[in-house]
Write a protein that binds this DNA or RNA. Sequence first.
DNA 1: ACGCTATCTGAACAGATGTTCAGAAAAAAC
DNA 2: GTTTTTTCTGAACATCTGTTCAGATAGCGT
Lengths: 201, 201
Amino acid sequence: MARTAGSHSDITGPRIQQAAQRLFARHGYAAVSMRQIAGEVGVQAGALYNYTRDKQSLLFGLMQDHMQELLATWGARPQGNGPVAALEAFTRFHIRFHLERPEEVFIAYMELRNLTPENHAAISALRGRYEDGLEAILKRGVAGGVFDVADTKIATLAVIAMLNGVNTWYRAGGRLSLDEVETVYWDMVRKAVAPAAISTA
Amino acid sequence: MARTAGSHSDITGPRIQQAAQRLFARHGYAAVSMRQIAGEVGVQAGALYNYTRDKQSLLFGLMQDHMQELLATWGARPQGNGPVAALEAFTRFHIRFHLERPEEVFIAYMELRNLTPENHAAISALRGRYEDGLEAILKRGVAGGVFDVADTKIATLAVIAMLNGVNTWYRAGGRLSLDEVETVYWDMVRKAVAPAAISTA
DNA sequence: ACGCTATCTGAACAGATGTTCAGAAAAAAC
DNA sequence: GTTTTTTCTGAACATCTGTTCAGATAGCGT
């Protein structure tokens, strides 16, 4: 046997990425074999190497695509007038974007240690750019007196960590709608960075 | 060759756990082999099985020990008078406890998916008890009017997620002391759950 | 209808995986 | 000093790992 009926790189390529994403998210990069991925696609393991240089590139590709889409989508957003509106826009965007792609997010956070040093640096740089975007908002707010945080870098990481937590429990069709979840978190973020006695409620 | 000079189960047992902890935290459960762990201890792979039933039990033991110590240490703490003091005590305790054992924490959060279903349920139950402790504080505060959150369950998870974030960036000997870090986070937590216009600052 | 290229198979490679176990030697008990 | 027990080795087990590649077939351009 050889080339199979209906085989097409436009089909197989994306299917390999999807299968890898599903399996990496579910079981972890190290626990997933190339044969498992191939099996999910309905192909032999050797065929994967028409689409990826090796297993590491498969992981890196997924993570890079995710981070670049995150940055591009965020960059194309209306930024909001003033730091408070910008922070609200960020909060709602972040929650929605991340809840829409739980697998990508999970991989992006859990599989960093399985990247080669160069790949790790590349992904970290992208993540840093995203974090800098939030920190810039906080800095403007602090300068303008509408926010009050002891350290904008720590506050940035604290806010992102808090927002990322939503991915651990939210399930579509649950008690709260996506919109309600956004509002609940925005309420906490807003207050957390607000000046001590002035609340914008 | 056979039993080696100076061999002692009181020594080897803990050394295996330490080695497993170090390696699991660094490279992930699935990426670490029994031979690597044995090598770290200076022993052949077969010797590990005098101390653990299998690799899975080694992981589960580490996670269970960690969670039980977390609960025991927290349970033995002064609880603080009133919800605000209790929340501050929780915040400071959580940060300190977690920063003191980054490897255990990392494993407890990253390796859940590598547990068998029964083991996963056991660890999740322990984690649930810890979260319930925080939620009880929040509920008392909401009832007493000193906290205002839309949903105590979500607020619980949000607070814990935010606090856990500290483990991703804090390094001993950095810019801020442990005490300062605690205060910075407590400041944000306090405000995040505070009623809209009343701040305890 | 024919040739070219894209796509996949199936076997092979060298080595790693978790786990078991008979046997040997060190330590402890007597 | 002898026996018993504890602790470890080293080999073996069957299976899995990522990756390569010659060869075979399907689809496409002509």
